[in-house]
Amino acid sequence: MHPMVDLQGVSKSYGSTVALHPTDLAFANGQTTALIGPSGCGKSTLLRLIIGLIQPTSGQVIFDGQPVSENNLLEIRRRTGYVIQDGGLFPHLTAEDNVTLVAKQILHDDLTVEVRQALADRANDRNPLANDRLRNVMSGSPQPAIPGGPNIPIKSENPRSNSSINLRIDLSQVSKRVAELAEMVRIPKDLLSRYPTELSGGQRERISLMRALMLSPKVLLLDEPLAALDPMVRAALQTDLKRIFEELGTTVILVTHDMGEAAYLGQTIVLLREGKIVQIGKLEDFQKAPKEPFVTEFLNAQRSLVAL
């Protein structure tokens, strides 16, 4: 089985400054990979390259077997969940509107004219061929990424060739999905009508996670999601994240600077330094067989109470 995300010789430079040296890295399907390293090591650059927020200077990113390009960027982003520090929620929208924003945009904007017409015709029962046309337009129903999850369609660049348009999607399904996710991330329903400024940091992070999971993504990207939280809240969220990742079986790429978090959540840890991969493995590998003195140095810098 091909890796879900595959970096092939990807590098990124800003002028003469190299943010990421040419890197090959494959992210296995259904695995959680933690990218770790000191500030400026290129871990966030790597994450932003995957989702096309920045373009690689060389090499290419393969997403689910397809090279990432201008043409499929939107679709790839919609198949990807993205969570950043402090959530990145839009302050002018309520928690729920943040969560459902893209889904509603897809419902409102992206259904093709053809489908709307077919629906209208069927509703008015004017056109005897309406049902046939509808069937043609609908042509196929994709498997939900999450067992029992919704079939929220993802727009492809050419709507006519899009086989994933699913007319069963409607607003009631969107709100059903929201309820489901709220339960999953343990957010009380009454918080959903609040604005981001009315929520705590941990709550914002949970809402952000709901937003990321709304469209049943194949890949979840988390860029230091818990960095700004206090230790109690962070620990609670780490527990919940681990449970959710296991429950969903999604491919997860987590950027963190906390080795404990990386080891707790990640099946694989990738340690970076100055734009280069230093070592890939599990915590034991880092402890028992460090590839460079830096690995030990980095581990030692992460004090724990136990060691004190």
Binding site: R48, I51, L53, L74, R77, R78, T80, Y82, I84, Q85, D86, G88, L89, F90, L101, V102, Q105, D109, R211, A212, L215, L221
Partner: peptide
């Protein structure tokens, strides 16, 4: 960060403008 978030979550440039 919110500009990046708007793009990253899969809004088209038009939707980024009108919704965010």
């Amino acid at each position: 960060t919110l500009r990046e978030a708007a793009a990253a979550i899969g809004l088209t440039p038009n939707q980024q403008l009108t919704r965010v």
